[in-house]
């Protein structure tokens, strides 16, 4: 390797093989040359290709997924201020070698004592729970029927299940406005058939929110269920039938217990995001009872109260921590088991 003699420092002599492909070496050499010698030394001693590969996604997610939560947590303890950004710093330098740490719990006590917030949390949980059960009621028969089809049909049905979720979620929710409103398609058809004389009010009701959530999240219920049901060994069912079990018994004693993992995954995939749902209740939902996602955005954008919005988010996270952890355990197990 020839180096210009004026170069103030030379890269430490190490095995080039360590940093993988020789083609990348010039880049490393340049980095070592511009970095402080102690850093270069450290990198050469401790890094390997493996560590760099692990570090890239780790650092990205740490910076943009983990750290943001810490910031939300921090701001939830601060006071609102009319400034940009509109919150008071937690730690202030008072001069005279004194640091002041102000932890303000007022945001949390405010949340827990104000009826608006408590009822919004309870309402969100109720809506999410009811919707995920409806998803199960509609999704399970579909996934079951799909898993019992021949391979060609299975692929076609899978594509048909996925296709709507590739088109815009927002526009699919919007489509329901056209169906549900007072002079919408459903009311028009029912009135034309003479079933009803007056239009039924369906928009801005709980019913509309359930329909919207079930409709948007149905694929997330069907896919894990289908993945699970598809793997069941038909020999088990045949054995049960040979031993004289009726189809209902076979289903209750064999298929249902075996598909429990899929059911849990599907329910959580619907329930957790539905609790914080914002778009569906804003377009279809009630105006007298808000869901917590809407409360959070209103608090943030309309009231510009960032600390309270942060506290709302932290409490929502605390409510969801347990479901999220169960989901993660399931997800990791599923991915490990495939091996």
């Amino acid at each position: 390797m020839s180096r210009s003699p004026v170069s103030p420092r030379s890269p430490p002599a190490v095995s080039r093989t360590r940093f993988g492909a020789g083609r990348m070496w010039p880049l490393w050499e340049w980095l070592f040359r511009i970095a402080p010698p102690s850093w270069s030394e450290y990198v050469l001693r401790h890094w390997s290709g493996r560590k760099v590969v692990i570090a890239i996604p780790w650092v990205w997610l740490g910076l943009f997924f983990l750290v943001p939560f810490l910031i939300v947590f921090k701001i939830s303890f601060s006071e609102v201020r009319i400034a940009m950004p509109p919150y008071a710093p937690l730690i202030e330098w008072l001069g005279d070698q004194a640091l002041q740490l102000r932890l303000n719990l007022a945001n949390y006590t405010f949340l827990l004592t104000d009826d608006l917030y408590v009822s919004s949390y309870l309402y969100s949980i109720k809506v999410a729970a009811v919707s995920s059960l409806w998803c199960l009621a509609i999704g399970y028969p579909m996934a079951y029927a799909m898993a019992r089809c021949t391979q060609t049909w299975r692929n076609l049905f899978l594509l048909l299940v996925m296709l709507p979720s590739f088109t815009s979620f927002l526009l699919r929710v919007y489509a329901w406005i056209g169906l549900l409103k007072n002079n919408g398609v459903i009311n028009n058809v029912l009135m034309a058939l003479g079933v009803i004389n007056e239009p039924i009010t369906m928009m801005q009701t709980d019913f509309a929110v359930y329909v919207g959530i079930v409709y948007s999240y149905l694929p997330f219920m069907i896919l894990p269920l289908y993945n699970n049901l598809e793997k069941h060994d038909p020999a088990l069912l045949e054995a049960a039938a040979d031993l004289g079990a009726r189809p209902v018994t076979t289903f209750l004693r064999i298929t249902l217990p075996l598909s429990l993992d899929g059911i849990v995954a599907g329910l959580l995939l619907v329930f957790i995001p539905a609790v914080g749902e914002f778009v569906i209740p804003s377009l279809l939902g009630r105006t007298d009872q808000l869901m917590i996602g809407r409360v959070l955005t209103d608090e943030f954008f309309s009231n510009r109260d960032w600390p309270v919005a942060s506290a709302v988010a932290i409490v929502m996270l605390l409510l969801l921590v347990l479901p999220i952890m169960i989901f993660q355990r399931y997800q990791t197990r599923e991915l490990e088991r495939r091996r």
Partner: peptide
């Protein structure tokens, strides 16, 4: 960190990233 974003409510992700 790779499975949590699959279910994380969007309002929380949005708020935390903006902050």
């Amino acid at each position: 960190m790779t499975t949590a974003p699959l279910v994380m409510p969007e309002v929380i992700t949005g708020l935390s990233l903006l902050l």
